[in-house]
Simulated scan of single mutants.
Amino acid sequence: MKAAFAALVFSLASIVSAYPITGDVVNCRTGPGTSYAIKKSYKKNQDISISCQTAGTSVNGNNIWDKTADGCYVADYYVKTGSSGYVTKKCTASSGGGSSSSSYCKTINTAGVDLIAKWEGFVASPKPDPIGLPTVGYGHLCQQKNCREVKYKFPLTKTTAKELLLDDLPKYTKCLADYLNDKPKLNANQWAALTSWVFNVGCGNAKTSTLVKRLNNGEAANTVAAEELPKWRMAGGKVLPGLEARRKDEVKLFKTASSKQAYPKCQ
């Protein structure tokens, strides 16, 4: 009887609670962030089951994302869990959350930061980029109206814009670490060049890219970068000369030798 009762308690404790959606239409994405592809959407008051939670893009001050029973992620801000903190276990690498390595470089070197700043261009106050997305600083994509989530005063200076960029970069290095397995061994310049690419094309696009698949297959990194990066030259359905030039800069940086390792271990 005791064994049966214990099994019943364990079974009940393992049941995932259901929580209602609070937004009118809430997107469930392939990863814990607004740059990931949309897998499905939930309607207001629809109950969802949460299997685990993980950190991701901050939405109105809440950076927790809930992995649903459908295998996709919704911002916890739009889920009525009764708490602004974690209400269940944190996602692990095996459950689709967390990085494949905890020792990768969370940020990138100066050469990479300068490359991103060069091609994103400085924007002191929020305005649409070439394809109509509201941005500010060096390529920060606004998450709220008028970029209210930015903690720096507008108009930005080049110094505060660079600080904002440094705040944003860990999101993109985490994407890379999540998508890459342990086969690629990347130095600081290779890591910086790939981060610039992900910063530009978005985490969702990087995740499904041939570039990432080839690196995970163990192909020579320099060859993969030289062949795959130049393919990412379109935006809004058009080939943009600026993107072609940016990809050339990223390939050049990628091929620049460096004795410092960045992935899977940071030196």
Rank of each mutant, 00 (worst) to 15 (best):
134 P>K: 11
109 N>E: 03
33 G>V: 05
31 G>A: 05
62 N>A: 07
149 E>S: 07
61 G>H: 06
145 K>P: 06
88 T>P: 06
73 Y>D: 03
143 Q>S: 14
81 T>P: 01
83 S>D: 01
140 H>R: 15
45 N>G: 12
44 K>F: 11
123 V>H: 05
98 G>W: 00
139 G>I: 06
151 K>G: 00
105 C>H: 11
145 K>M: 07
94 S>K: 07
69 A>P: 09
60 N>H: 10
66 D>C: 07
135 T>Y: 06
131 I>S: 07
143 Q>I: 13
65 W>K: 02
134 P>Y: 12
102 S>H: 12
72 C>N: 03
101 S>E: 08
127 K>C: 01
119 W>S: 11
136 V>T: 01
159 T>D: 13
149 E>Y: 10
102 S>L: 13
133 L>H: 04
88 T>W: 06
62 N>L: 03
97 G>N: 02
112 G>I: 07
121 G>I: 10
68 T>H: 12
96 G>Y: 01
94 S>T: 06
111 A>C: 11
110 T>R: 05
31 G>Y: 04
151 K>N: 03
119 W>F: 13
85 G>Q: 06
46 Q>K: 08
27 N>Y: 15
82 G>A: 10
77 Y>S: 12
45 N>E: 13
39 K>G: 07
67 K>S: 11
123 V>Y: 01
65 W>V: 01
147 C>M: 06
86 Y>A: 04
143 Q>T: 14
116 I>G: 02
63 N>R: 13
37 A>F: 03
148 R>Q: 10
69 A>F: 09
106 K>E: 15
139 G>W: 07
85 G>D: 06
62 N>D: 07
116 I>R: 03
82 G>W: 09
25 V>P: 00
105 C>V: 11
145 K>H: 10
24 D>R: 13
73 Y>F: 09
153 K>F: 13
98 G>H: 00
93 A>G: 00
67 K>L: 14
32 P>F: 04
126 P>K: 01
39 K>C: 09
45 N>I: 12
77 Y>I: 13
54 T>P: 00
64 I>Q: 00
138 Y>I: 07
79 V>H: 00
37 A>Q: 07
156 L>Y: 05
47 D>A: 11
24 D>A: 13
52 C>M: 11
155 P>K: 07
47 D>N: 14
120 E>F: 05
43 K>F: 15
111 A>Q: 08
151 K>D: 02
111 A>K: 08
35 S>Q: 07
